[in-house]
Design a protein around this nucleic acid. Structure first.
Ligand SMILES: [Mn+2]
Ligand SMILES: [Mn+2]
Length: 397
DNA sequence: GCAAGCA
DNA sequence: TGCTTGCAACGCCAA
DNA sequence: TTGGCG
């Protein structure tokens, strides 16, 4: 830190004071607090598409990315009059005035508070009980390859399409990926979460080697589709958020044709502004692709009828009606443990694996190379196969 | 990161 | 004036 | 009281 002087920026017609502008926020890559503010202003159009009009929890790193962080839901009482808030209510009856950002000045102001990533709720301030965003949070268990995450993302895209939704992918900037769907604000939080449970189970059904819908860590393998991130009061780091990691990695929206080859480490505070200037925001159309949860909720009803009801909720939530016992297998009372482990995923609706002749079709993906006429034809065929069976490609040793 | 309280 | 201090989320369930 | 999970 050289001169401990405030920096006053003119942003969206307002004066925003940045304290400690030269403070190093990312020691390993050298970026300062002012670098972080400048980054957010460079990608403000995209960042605001992610957080605009939404109440948000503040995660504050007042001593930089390597310092200890704390959460803050209630807006600081000392704030400019142009900082908007909205009152949220919790099940306990307590309330919180959370910040709502709509423009670049408000964005710069919260970055000055020491926020590195942005964590908005999936609702707009005008309707706090009806999310307009279904969030698919892909969380790899430790050791899972990036290739597997990409493949689960592609399978998720197919499932969403089959159920009438358009997915918008981004790296999380941490270890996984996020896929968001804009939805009509017609469903409550518990309903949106149940749609996410059904989606997670369907992705696992299609790609059982690399995807899991299981809440308990000891029962997971591959990539976990974290349906509970759609519960009320849960937030997710938004598009263009910088993550508090050494290289200042960014949660970066992607075009779907980038997903099969993207590398998360390519997107940082240092590289994303250029990308944004050159190609703009791949998620620009998200607000125009409004979908319905009806099909996923119908799938959920089928699961329920097949004996697969609700899935465990996170800690700190009251027990929900219909929720299974909130305990992992290894801690369950002996007499409550199933003799044969119950799968996480119900079978498909009938009539899907049997062809018109009644002869059973092959259910497992099968590669045939020996029949190809030439090597190039064989290679081309292999690529087509890969595109159609993303669910197992990354799993091949 | 900031404001209040204290020397 | 300058330094220190307190404060900044959600808060349940099962064994 | 401990450990579950973001
Ligand atoms: Mn995640
Ligand atoms: Mn998660």
């Amino acid at each position: 830190m050289s001169a401990a002087k405030d920096e006053v920026l003119e942003v969206a017609g307002r004066a925003v004071t940045i304290s400690n502008p030269d403070k190093v926020f990312f020691p390993k890559s050298g970026h300062t607090k002012l670098d972080l503010v400048r980054y957010y202003l460079a990608v403000a159009e995209g960042a605001l598409r992610g957080v605009g009009g939404r109440p948000m929890a503040l995660k504050r790193f007042v001593n930089g990315a390597e310092g200890e962080a704390f959460f803050q839901k209630r807006a600081p009482t000392s704030r400019p009059e142009w900082i908007e808030t909205v009152e949220l209510s919790f099940p306990s009856g307590r309330t919180a005035e959370e910040i709502v950002v709509r423009d670049a000045a408000q964005l710069a102001w919260i970055i000055n508070l020491g926020c590195i990533d942005l964590n908005p709720h999936p609702v707009r301030a005008g309707d706090l009980d009806h999310p307009d965003e279904l969030r698919v949070d892909l969380d790899p268990v430790p050791g899972v390859s990036w290739a597997q995450i990409r493949d689960v993302a592609m399978v998720t895209r197919d499932v969403l399409k089959d159920f009438g939704l358009v997915g918008w992918p981004k790296t999380s900037g941490s270890r996984g990926m996020h896929i968001y769907c804009r939805i009509e604000p017609r469903w409550t939080f518990p309903e949106v979460r149940r749609a996410a449970v059904a989606l997670a189970r369907e992705v696992e059904r299609r790609a059982p080697q690399i995807a899991t819908s299981r809440w308990w860590k000891e029962e997971r393998h591959g990539v976990f589709l974290d349906y509970n991130q759609n519960a009320k009061d849960r937030t997710v780091a938004s598009a263009y958020s910088v993550r508090p990691l050494d290289d200042a990695r960014v949660s970066t929206p992607l075009m779907w044709d980038e997903v099969p080859t993207c590398e998360a480490e390519a997107f940082t505070l240092a590289t994303v502004p250029r990308r944004f200037a050159e190609i703009g925001d791949p998620s620009k159309g998200i607000d125009e692709a409004v979908g319905s949860l009806e099909a996923l909720l119908e799938l959920s009803a089928q699961h329920e009828a097949a004996g697969f009801g609700d899935a465990p909720w996170p800690p700190h939530f009251a027990k929900q009606t219909g929720e299974p016992s909130r305990v992992q297998l290894s801690r369950r009372k002996r007499e409550d443990r199933p003799a044969t482990p119950k799968g996480a995923v119900p079978p498909p609706a009938p009539g899907k694996t049997v062809g018109p002749t009644g002869r059973r079709r092959t259910t497992m993906p099968l590669i045939e190379i020996a029949r190809a006429a030439s090597e190039t034809e064989a290679r081309a065929g292999l690529q087509r196969w890969r595109a159609r069976h993303a669910e197992v490609w990354s799993h091949l040793a």
